[in-house]
Amino acid sequence: MKQCKDLLVAAVEYPSPGYVLLRLTDTEPLGEILGGQFVEIRVDGSPSTFLRRPISVNYVDTQRNELHLLIHVVGEGTRSLSQLRAGDRLNVLFPLGNGFTRGRAGEKVLLVGGGVGIAPLLEYGRQLCEAGAQPQFLLGGRSRDNMLMLDRFEALGKVYVTTEDGSMGEQGFVTQHSLLQKPDFDRISVCGPKPMMMAVAKYSKEHCIRCEVSLENMMACGLGACLCCVEKTVKGNVCVCKQGPVFDVQELNW
């Protein structure tokens, strides 16, 4: 059931320069939210921001009834969000989209993330563990400074890192990591910059491994009404906000 309501900002954290982590809560239970789903935030008080901002769900703390959003500050809208303080209220439309494939007991899933695309993989990894699946993480970034929340990922499964400058893990892109030479996983879920996702999709097709990717086309409504965020698929143009954001790569015209 989708909701649109004012959530309370329980805490604001700054995990790295240029990033902000919002912890939101409510007096009522937040309800079921799937890893890979997203929210649309109304940005108040920013004269140049008119539309809501889609942000992936980073983590759901069911005990504290908290919804965590990891936000990369890239423009006016996200800058305005980074200035929120504990006690503020934020109007949120959630949960939106389909989410990643639910985990099955015993399956090994490789979660590949790049940049702020790592955000939804934390909640998805948590839900995979809960389902008895085994997640492992391959995370890429420009340098050590872009690698966030590694301890949180390590608590869920093995973490492999690549950085473009070699300051942490193996040097290069995620697709160059030695882990991929001897694949020991049943499927792959990816979220990150489009070139990275396309490279992983290509790898998965070559190795006949099932792969899903999370897209972030520009969107307005978030509900499948405005048809602005479409992606070309084998079934024609479909809304990333509703039929996605997660797609099996076989469905995409990549």
């Binding site: 140049s48 921001t49 008119f50 539309l51 086309n217 520009m218 969107m219 307005a220 405005c226 048809l227 602005c228 965020c229 479409v230 992606e231 070309k232 143009n237």
Partner: peptide, 13 residues
């Protein structure tokens, strides 16, 4: 795609 652009107090589609 792209079919939408945010503009001051509005949007293009």
């Amino acid at each position: 795609y792209p079919r939408m652009a945010e503009t001051p107090q509005g949007m293009l589609n």
